[in-house]
Amino acid sequence: MEVRTIKVFTTVDNINLHTQVVDMSMTYGQQFGPTYLDGADVTKIKPHNSHEGKTFYVLPNDDTLRVEAFEYYHTTDPSFLGRYMSALNHTKKWKYPQVNGLTSIKWADNNCYLATALLTLQQIELKFNPPALQDAYYRARAGEAANFCALILAYCNKTVGELGDVRETMSYLFQHANLDSCKRVLNVVCKTCGQQQTTLKGVEAVMYMGTLSYEQFKKGVQIPCTCGKQATKYLVQQESPFVMMSAPPAQYELKHGTFTCASEYTGNYQCGHYKHITSKETLYCIDGALLTKSSEYKGPITDVFYKENSYTTTIK
């Protein structure tokens, strides 16, 4: 009895394709271990004539594949690729409408935090270190965002349907971005203890939790000093293409032309909904596939993004 075979390709990165001759009487799992086709788990399936010449994702289970996976995804987590594939199996079914010149995501599976993050990423200057993220990001900007969303979920250790947080998501993504040249110098002034300067680099240099107003941050924000008295913390120097200011959701007025974009969060910790506000020729609110415009805006804002380049204080 002759062994019926077909020729397929296996890959971990969709760049390096490895030619395989597979036995049609055995499952993919018996031949390769966990195997995925377009995100779908085909591990328990036997090869079919229609699979001839198709590319299958496999887990990096030998040295060659491990090197290829690390170079593309910059992670050695053995569960990463499987999590990416199972997320992709959902995100490829989502709709990605162009809204006001940006790629958004039609609401499904509690994905409003991903839509808000995706919209924000198209408006701030950011370059990702893992080629996987950078490639998928370019495709997302062009309207094909399924891979990018699935990668975000995998890097953030999230599953489809789980509630997510924009600030946490951005923080994970910033860790995989090139923020080497970003720098922030802060000064804390206390009447009792004097003053202390701190220099922050990388992710810490672009994120701040405690106030939404970048102007206020430049002037000074009140913080408790270690001595128990009130101290003032203010920005001395900022070198970065953008800054992200966050605070627990509270009524906040966004003035046209003073910011790049913002995240609105309605609801409580267990259950809520994100919308995205962007400042173009007027203010726009993007909620999944829905767009509304207004000249002014007041609502429960939790993150505001500002364009920056270089700032030095005039406070002496």
Rank of each mutant, 00 (worst) to 15 (best):
Thr43Asn: 07
Asp109Pro: 00
Pro300Gln: 15
Lys46Met: 13
Lys218Ala: 07
Glu71Asp: 12
Gln238Leu: 04
Thr292Ser: 12
Thr91Ser: 02
Thr11Val: 03
Gly202Gln: 05
Ala145Pro: 11
Ala205His: 03
Ser50Tyr: 08
Tyr234Phe: 09
Gly101Gln: 07
Ala142Gln: 15
Glu281Trp: 01
Thr232Val: 11
Ser246Met: 02
Gly82Pro: 12
Glu52Cys: 09
Ala262Arg: 08
Ser171Leu: 13
Ile152Gln: 03
Asn16Gly: 07
Lys293Trp: 09
Arg141Ser: 10
Thr192Met: 11
Tyr274Ile: 09
Gln230His: 11
Glu253His: 13
Val185Phe: 03
Gln196Leu: 10
Arg66Ala: 08
Thr43Val: 05
Asp180Trp: 06
Met170Trp: 02
Val189Tyr: 09
Gly53Ala: 11
Thr266Cys: 12
Val3Ala: 13
Pro130Trp: 01
Lys7Trp: 11
Gln222Phe: 14
Ala247His: 07
Ser213Cys: 08
Glu71Lys: 15
Tyr274His: 10
Leu59Gly: 09
Met244Phe: 07
Asn147Arg: 11
Val243Asn: 08
Gly164Val: 07
Tyr73Glu: 01
Ala117His: 02
Ser104Trp: 15
Ala231Cys: 12
Met245Asn: 09
Tyr36Ala: 02
Leu163Met: 12
Ile152Lys: 00
Arg141Pro: 00
Ala117Ser: 10
Gly101Thr: 03
Tyr214Val: 11
Phe259Val: 04
Ile286Glu: 01
Leu179Gly: 01
Leu114Ile: 14
Ile277Lys: 05
Glu296Met: 13
Leu235Gly: 02
Tyr172Glu: 13
Lys54Glu: 04
Ala262Met: 02
Ala136Leu: 01
Ala142Tyr: 10
Leu81Arg: 06
Cys285Glu: 10
Gly210Glu: 03
Gln123Lys: 01
Pro241Gln: 11
Cys182Tyr: 07
Gln222Ser: 12
Phe242Ser: 01
Phe148Arg: 00
Gly143Ser: 03
Val243Lys: 08
Val203Gln: 13
Thr312Phe: 14
Lys191Leu: 10
Glu125Cys: 10
Tyr73Pro: 00
Leu118Asp: 02
Asn111Phe: 00
Asn187Pro: 06
Tyr57Val: 10
Lys93His: 14
Trp94Pro: 01
Thr282Ala: 10
Lys54Asp: 11
Lys280Asp: 10
Asn157Met: 05
Glu215Phe: 04
Asp165Thr: 15
Asp135Thr: 12
His90Ala: 14
Met85Pro: 00
Lys127Met: 05
Cys156Ser: 05
Gln20Trp: 04
Cys112Tyr: 01
Arg139Leu: 10
Thr11Ala: 02
Tyr36Asp: 05
Glu264Lys: 08
Lys280Pro: 05
Cys227Leu: 02
Thr5Gln: 12
Thr211Trp: 01
Cys156Tyr: 07
Thr199Leu: 10
Asn16Leu: 13
Leu163Trp: 13
Ala250Phe: 08
Asn187Ser: 14
Val236Ala: 15
Pro78Gly: 15
Ala262Pro: 08
Leu283Met: 08
Met207Cys: 14
Gly143Arg: 00
Cys271Lys: 12
Ala247Ser: 13
Ile301Thr: 06
Phe80Glu: 03
Ser240Thr: 06
Lys7Ser: 12
Gln196Phe: 13
Ala247Tyr: 07
Leu283Gly: 05
Glu162Trp: 01
Tyr138Ala: 09
Asn49Trp: 15
Leu114Met: 06
Gly194Ile: 03
Asn268Asp: 07
His74Tyr: 02
Tyr138Thr: 13
Val221Thr: 10
Tyr214Ala: 04
Asn157Thr: 07
Leu163Arg: 09
Cys182Val: 06
Asn268Gly: 06
Gly29Ile: 02
Thr116Cys: 12
Phe32Gly: 03
Glu162Gln: 12
Gly164Glu: 00
Ile277His: 06
Ala250Thr: 11
Thr282Lys: 10
Gly220Pro: 10
Thr19Phe: 07
Ile105Cys: 01
Thr91Tyr: 00
Cys182Ile: 07
Leu65Gln: 12
Met26Gln: 15
Val3His: 14
Val203Tyr: 09
Val188Ala: 04
Gly272Val: 05
Ser86Thr: 10
Ala140Ile: 09
Tyr172Met: 14
Val236Cys: 09
Thr64Glu: 13
Lys218Phe: 03
Glu239Ala: 08
Met245Pro: 04
Ser294Gln: 12
Gly194His: 03
Ser310Thr: 15
Asp180Ala: 12
Thr226Cys: 10
Lys183Arg: 12
Thr258Gly: 11
Thr169Val: 14
Ile301Ser: 05
Lys44Gly: 12
Gln195Leu: 12
Gly228Arg: 05
Thr232Pro: 02
Glu215Ser: 14
Cys227Ile: 03
Tyr284Lys: 04
Glu144Pro: 01
Asp63Thr: 12
Tyr274Ala: 08
Ser240Asp: 05
Lys218Gly: 03
Ala247Asn: 08
Ser295Lys: 14
Lys316Cys: 11
Gly82Val: 10
Leu173Arg: 04
Val3Ser: 13
Leu283Ala: 04
Gly267Ser: 13
Ser181Gly: 15
Ala289Thr: 08
Tyr36Phe: 08
Gly39Trp: 05
Asp165Phe: 02
Asp135Met: 15
Leu126Asp: 04
Val21Ser: 09
Val99Tyr: 06
Ala247Met: 09
Pro130Gly: 01
Thr75Ile: 10
Glu253Thr: 15
Pro47Met: 02
Phe174Ala: 04
Leu290Asn: 11
Gln222Glu: 14
Lys233Ile: 12
Met170Gln: 01
Gln251Trp: 04
Phe148Ala: 00
Phe242Cys: 08
Ala142His: 14
Val185Thr: 11
Thr10Leu: 11
Ile315Gln: 15
Tyr252Leu: 03
Cys225His: 14
Gln251Ile: 13
Asp109Met: 03
Leu81Pro: 10
Glu71Gly: 15
Lys183Met: 06
Arg83Val: 03
Arg83Thr: 01
Tyr265Met: 13
Ala262Phe: 03
Tyr138Trp: 01
Arg4Trp: 11
Gly220His: 04
Tyr311Met: 09
Leu173Val: 13
Tyr297Gly: 05
Gln270Glu: 05
Asn89Ser: 07
Ser263His: 15
Leu290Arg: 10
Leu173Ala: 03
Glu168Trp: 00
Ala231Ile: 03
Gln98Leu: 15
Val206Ile: 11
Gly143Leu: 01
Thr103Lys: 01
Gln31Pro: 01
Leu118Phe: 14
Leu81Trp: 04
Arg167Tyr: 11
Ile124Ser: 05
Pro249Leu: 03
Gly101Ser: 03
Leu37Arg: 10
Asn100Ser: 02
Asn187Met: 14
Ile286Tyr: 07
Gln30Lys: 15
His51Tyr: 04
His74Met: 09
Lys191Trp: 09
Tyr208Ile: 05
Arg66Phe: 10
Phe174Leu: 10
Asn110Val: 02
Thr211His: 12
Lys46Val: 13
Phe128Gln: 00
Gln230Ala: 10
Gly267Leu: 15
Pro60Cys: 07
Leu163Val: 12
Ile45Val: 13
Met209Gly: 10
Val8Arg: 03
Trp107Pro: 15
His51Glu: 10
Asp303Arg: 02
Val21Gly: 09
His176Gly: 01
Glu215Tyr: 05
Glu162Ser: 08
Leu291Met: 04
Leu65His: 15
Tyr269Gly: 15
Gly220Trp: 02
Ala289Arg: 07
Ala150Gly: 05
Arg167Ala: 03
Thr226Asp: 15
Ala247Arg: 04
Thr76Ile: 12
Thr199Ile: 08
Gly202Asn: 04
Cys193Val: 06
Asp41Lys: 06
Val304Phe: 04
Ala146His: 07
Ile15Trp: 07
Val189Glu: 14
His51Pro: 00
Thr64Ser: 09
Val221Trp: 07
Leu186Gly: 06
Lys7Leu: 10
Cys225Thr: 03
Gly82Phe: 13
Gln20Leu: 03
Tyr265His: 09
Lys218Trp: 02
Pro60Lys: 06
Glu239Thr: 12
Lys307Arg: 13
Cys156Leu: 12
Thr260Asp: 13
Met207Gln: 09
Ala140Asn: 03
Pro300His: 15
Gly202Phe: 03
Asn100Pro: 02
Asp303Ser: 09
Asp77Thr: 00
Leu200Thr: 10
Tyr172Leu: 12
Val99Gln: 04
Leu173Cys: 04
Phe70Asn: 08
Phe217Val: 07
Tyr234Thr: 11
Phe305Leu: 08
Met24Asn: 11
Arg139Ile: 02
Asp13Tyr: 00
Thr159Asp: 15
Lys95Pro: 00
Gly299Ala: 08
Phe242Leu: 05
Val203Thr: 12
Val21Thr: 14
Tyr172Lys: 01
Ser171Gly: 15
Tyr269Gln: 12
Thr75Arg: 03
Gln175Ala: 10
Asn110Thr: 05
Glu52Asp: 11
Arg141Gly: 09
Ile301Asp: 05
Thr226Ile: 05
Thr159Leu: 13
Phe148Asn: 00
Val221Tyr: 07
Asp287Ile: 03
Tyr155Leu: 01
